[in-house]
């Protein structure tokens, strides 16, 4: 079987399984979010009511969109403060067998924002920075709550289409409780148990030490008595040469974090190497399950949308647009990676795939996964807001690296993150019908709601906030000393590293071109601000659109209504997404991966 066939079969297997689950899971999510009785709600009902009682919440009392938005913002601020406090105080708190030092203030700020925004950008190395308590009570808890926040926003936007002539769009506390309790928690428990079966670790042990056969000489960072790295005048870590035969094997409660990391499209790894670490992703099967878990809820939400608006064809149409875009870009990444580095041939290196070798570009990839599963993982993690990696994106070919970058820049809607994917593509759908309305001279409408000036102003805020954050952030990064100091590969690739960093932060993805040294005061602050604005400004706009639509009357379908479930609408939607993505980012992409591609094939 050739490499291309292997890639196609792997993609079909995973996407086929996910799409097969979309209908039952999508129906279940609709039942949960609309308060219908399910097996889980009958089991967890008393606990759900206890949560409301403890929080002093009346679940029957619905909110206006602005009340909902402020509740959401305060809830997430509280989450950020908890993570920040846990990191700063972890040395004095339990479950820290390695006695890891308090995290620095700038890194703690960055990580706190990263995990409440579902970005999970990691400037730190988990195994040498975070105590078990911080990982579990801080980071893992936020993996649930940030995914539940995204799902809540999606449901509000969908309610905007269902309801009419009302200013009430739901209760944030109810939405976030139900989605955590009845969807994310049960799925994560099941996946964690399966991953443990594959060899993912789950314990509270101190780190193990193994004796290696060969001696290893390495540069060891110097630390002060508190365990903090000592830096020179330029901010670089001071190191000393050391030799060892001891290898430290990190331990910890990994599986419980790993499952929600994928299912919640969070992506923050327990270890620095993320899903390329054998304790996070040990086997071919665990790799397939992790990719499927990333896709599971975002694709199912298209069916949830169709079911809630009473026409499942609407959901299938959105899914079709997502699949077309994803398939083309994922295949591009694979072809580029399997094509490999053209300079290798000049040095007599055989890069052809044979029965004995994978061929292509294997730099930065795990041999147990190979090119097909690594390219597919890279595309999956950036087509959603996940950001987990099973290989190093910095080592991909220029076009291979362009694909994850562009998938994020499209807005992460193929299928996008938990909740974020469906609400992002719905806003592109609103924009699409608006453009179509302008072309044919009719008042645009979508699912029985007129799309008017207010919705378009809000959609503009939604769509333009992220490119503004990404491009302004990148511009600041390339002209300031702090920004340039983190680049390990100057030139076009270095530009791509900064662009990737801000793209990942602004779109709340969290994956990184590993070449960027981001644990500096500049990047911790700049990316922290980018993550917050890239998350909550679009959320506010989406909630406002939901509120605005809910307040309108429903208009009947007539012969002049454009069908929004057929090939014409799907093409229009794909065209709108591509047009916005290309217009926003082509100049920046031309300076990074595109230049690098031409330089590589010119022999530089």
């Amino acid at each position: 079987m050739d490499a291309g066939t292997r890639f196609a079969l792997l993609a079909l297997l995973i996407l086929g399984a996910v799409i097969a689950c979309a209908k039952p899971l999508g129906k279940y999510i609709a039942d949960v979010m609309e308060g219908r009785a399910t097996f889980a709600s009958r089991l967890g009902g008393p606990f759900e009511r206890l949560i409301y009682r403890l929080c002093g919440t009346d679940p029957a009392q619905e909110m206006t969109w602005s009340h909902y938005a402020i509740a959401l913002l305060l809830f997430n601020l509280l989450g950020a403060l908890v993570i920040y406090g846990l990191q700063r105080l972890q040395l004095w708190l339990p479950l820290n067998p390695q006695h890891l030092a308090a995290v620095s203030a700038d890194s703690a700020f960055n990580t706190a924002v990263a995990f409440v925004t579902n970005t999970d950008w990691q400037g730190y190395s988990g195994e040498s920075t975070m105590s078990y308590l911080t990982q579990m009570a801080g980071l893992t808890v936020q993996n649930y709550l940030s995914a539940a926040t995204g799902l809540s926003v999606a449901v509000v936007l969908i309610r905007g289409f269902i309801r009419h002539s009302t200013d009430r769009i739901g209760n944030f506390w109810v939405d976030v409780t139900r989605s955590s309790l009845y969807l994310l928690l049960p799925l994560s428990i099941v996946l964690a148990l399966v991953l443990v079966g594959q060899g993912v670790i789950q314990n509270f042990e101190s780190y193990e030490t193994a004796t290696t056969i060969e001696k290893l000489t390495f540069d060891n960072p110097k630390t002060d008595p508190d365990g903090n790295a000592i830096k020179d005048d330029k901010g670089n870590a001071v190191t000393e040469s050391a030799t060892t035969q001891a290898q430290t094997l990190p331990m910890g409660p990994v599986a419980s974090q790993e499952s929600i990391k994928e299912l919640g499209t969070n992506g923050g790894g327990f270890f620095n190497a993320n899903s390329s670490h054998p304790y996070e992703n040990p086997t071919t099967l665990s790799n397939v399950l992790e990719i499927a878990a990333i896709f599971l809820i975002p694709f199912a939400l298209t069916y949830t949308f169709g079911r809630m608006v009473g026409d499942t064809r609407q959901g299938w149409a959105l899914m079709a647009a997502m699949l077309v875009l994803f398939a083309v870009l994922a295949a591009t990444a694979f072809v580029s990676e399997q094509g490999g580095n053209p300079l290798f041939a000049q040095h007599g290196v055989d890069s052809q795939a044979t029965a004995m070798q994978s061929g292509g570009n294997m730099e930065g990839k795990e041999t147990r996964f190979g090119i097909a599963a690594s390219a597919l993982f890279a595309a999956a993690t950036t087509a959603t807001s996940c950001g987990a990696v099973n290989g190093m994106h910095d080592s991909m070919t220029p076009i291979g690296g362009f694909v994850p970058l562009f998938l994020m820049q499209l807005g992460e809607l193929t299928p996008g993150g938990v909740g974020t994917g469906i609400y992002t593509i719905l806003i592109f759908a609103i924009l699409g019908v608006f453009i179509a309305g302008l072309m044919i001279g009719r008042t645009p409408e979508y699912l029985g709601k007129k799309i008017q000036a207010r919705e378009m102003k809000l959609a503009s805020i939604f769509i333009l906030t992220t490119p503004m954050v990404v491009l302004v952030g990148t511009a600041i990064g390339v002209v300031t000393l702090g920004g340039k100091a983190g680049v390990s590969n100057p030139g076009a690739h270095g530009f791509s590293e900064i662009l990737y960093g801000f793209t990942s932060a602004g779109n709340n993805n969290g994956s990184a071109f590993a070449g960027l040294s981001a644990n500096t005061e500049f990047y911790n602050l700049a990316l922290g601000i980018a993550m917050w604005l890239g998350r909550f400004w679009p959320i506010v706009a989406a909630l406002a659109i939901g509120g605005s639509l809910a307040s309108k009357k429903r208009i009947p379908v007539t012969e002049g209504t454009m069908p929004t479930h057929g090939p014409l609408f799907i093409s229009l939607l794909i065209g709108t997404i591509l047009l916005i993505g290309v217009l926003n980012y082509v100049p920046a992409l031309a300076l990074g991966p595109v230049v690098e591609h031409f330089m590589l094939f010119q022999g530089h």
């Binding site: 602005s66 938005a69 402020i70 920040y84 203030a105 700020f109 207010r454 805020i461 909550f536």
Partner: peptide, 30 residues
């Protein structure tokens, strides 16, 4: 340092609440 970063966090929150209040002033269509 904690004061600086917590202040930035609250400033981001206030800027976002400002956006909520700003959007409420955008006129309604009927």
């Amino acid at each position: 340092m904690d004061v600086i970063y917590l202040t930035i966090l609250f400033a981001l929150l206030l800027a976002t609440i400002g956006l909520v209040l700003g959007i409420e002033r955008i006129g309604e269509d009927r």
